[in-house]
Write a protein that binds this DNA or RNA. Structure first.
Length: 483
DNA sequence: ATGTAC
């Protein structure tokens, strides 16, 4: 167990566990927090897991953790690990089981007051049109071989099939397609699990939420994104469903052999990994990219369902009910990027697990529409609480490989939440607050209760206050749709 | 997160 005399505070919101803490650390570990958030992680293994990641071969600068850190598989959720190419490692545990779990934010020109009379119908339409729940199939049945095209082409597949616009793709990380995805590196089992789940929500913390813009913090940036006070927005939070899960399982198993073969010494077997330059590392990267592309398509098809739902409910009632995209960004992904380390620009594999890319202004990978303000960062809160839109900064590039947090972060395990919280009661409380709830499972609802999470506003204050991101807008929920 | 165990 790591206690408070094992780390030192080096800035208002930044703490460091020195390299000398454990002989096997290759770099220091750094985490962003405040005293309250520090308390929230006492008793779980997240800091120990963070220190474990500091031992990984090829890691540069720091093992990093965001203020929403909590315990995960091997790596903490809320962790950022960058390893130097060519021989630094890549690890499925550094990405997570839900590859390219991420958030898409859609905007409208509808005012909050305008939509209120139709909110119940809209919530019901979204629930009916967007399939949710464990193992749930979607409306799209892929012909044999078409899934291979989908995982390699990503959002371009959706564009060709009429589920996307060119503007949607422009406002998606990597235009919704990671180059180098290889369907040949994905098992038949993973493909079988994925073939009927395109355009489905899944379960757990995944949701669709209708929000209203509560407050603007950066007026010029908000205007550029199309965010104005009291306007209606929609968030999608989901990932690569059974396909990504199976790919992770497959490669955890395969890379365990690679750990032996390459003689890697790991403090925890859950850190299973392989040198990125090895055949195993390359294969995982190519398969992971396929799952990432699948998740971009998944959120894109859900966007299509959302547009359909707005049309069904609001046509003839609200004149302009157009739903357009602000941005789509992953928070479970490994990416090869160039970063400055010790004054030199080098290629690194940045693992972001429960951490969101947050590139600052001027980054050449950003679309022209956002290059001057920095990358939009989408941080969902918990049911019934706020969500945030931020932009990346120069500081995120120098401190955290262009990364920030991904959400509120759990404080209570799923099982404990299920035991202590009644889904029906929670639903009543949310409805009393005026939040429409459509959920397939009451126990699933209980797992995601706000009290099972940290305070997202506090988490955001830490990333904003430390300079690694800048607040743009706060969103508050009006309707939540869950599997 | 997940056909919450193959």
């Amino acid at each position: 167990m790591i206690s408070d005399h094992d780390f030192k505070q080096i800035d208002k919101y930044l703490y460091e566990i020195p390299k000398t803490f454990r002989a096997d650390m290759r770099v220091p570990a750094r985490f962003y927090a405040d005293p309250e958030l520090l308390k929230a992680i006492q008793g779980d293994r997240s800091l120990e897991q963070l220190v474990n990641t500091a031992t990984l071969p090829g890691i540069v600068k720091y093992a990093l953790a965001m203020p929403d850190i909590h315990q995960g598989y091997g790596f903490p959720i809320g962790g950022v690990v960058a390893t130097q190419l060519p021989d630094g490692i890549i690890s499925p545990g550094g990405v997570g089981y839900d590859i390219n779990c991420g958030v898409r934010l859609l905007a409208t020109q509808i005012e909050k007051e305008e939509i209120t009379p139709y909110l119940d119908d809209l919530a019901s339409a979204l629930y009916t049109n967007c399939p949710g729940g464990v193992g749930k199939a979607g409306h799209i049945k892929l012909r044999p071989g078409e899934l291979d095209v989908l995982v390699e082409k990503g959002a371009n597949w959706a564009l060709t099939r009429g589920y996307a616009t060119a503007s949607d793709l422009e406002r998606t990380e990597e235009n919704g397609c990671l180059a180098g995805a290889d369907a040949g590196k994905i098992s038949d089992r993973a493909k079988t699990r994925g073939k009927d789940q395109v355009g489905t929500l899944g379960s757990g913390n995944h949701f669709i939420e209708v929000d209203a813009v509560d407050r603007i913090y950066d007026e010029p940036a908000a205007r550029q994104m199309g965010l104005f006070p009291s306007r209606i927005t929609v968030q999608i939070h989901c990932g690569s469903r059974g396909l990504g899960h199976q790919i992770c399982s497959d490669y955890v198993k395969r890379l365990q052999k690679a750990v032996h073969q390459y003689g890697l010494i790991l403090p925890d077997r859950e850190l299973v990994c392989a040198p990125l330059s090895s055949p195993e590392g390359q294969d995982y990267l190519a398969a992971m990219k396929g799952a990432a592309n699948y998740a971009f398509v998944n959120r894109q098809v859900l966007t299509w369902h959302i547009r359909r739902s707005f049309e069904q409910v609001l046509a003839g009632k609200i004149k302009n009910h157009h739903v357009y995209q602000i941005y789509d960004i992953a928070h479970n992904m490994a990416k090869v990027e160039e970063h400055e380390v010790d004054g030199r620009r080098i290629k690194v594999c940045v693992h972001r697990k429960g951490a969101t890319r947050a590139f600052g202004p001027g980054s050449p990978v950003l679309p022209g529409i956002y290059r001057n303000i920095g990358q939009p960062v989408l941080v969902p809160g918990t049911m019934g609480t706020a969500s945030w839109v931020l932009v990346g900064t120069k500081e995120s590039m120098t401190q955290t490989f262009g990364s920030i947090c991904h959400g509120a972060g759990r404080v209570m395990s799923r099982s404990k939440a299920k035991k202590n919280i009644r889904g029906t009661r929670l639903r009543e409380e949310l409805e009393k607050k005026g939040i429409r709830v459509r959920a397939g499972s009451m126990s699933g609802l209980a797992e995601e209760a706000p009290m099972a999470y940290k305070d997202v506003d506090r988490v955001i204050q830490v990333v904003h206050g430390s300079g690694i991101a800048k607040k743009v807008a706060r969103l508050i929920p009006l309707a939540v749709i869950k599997g």
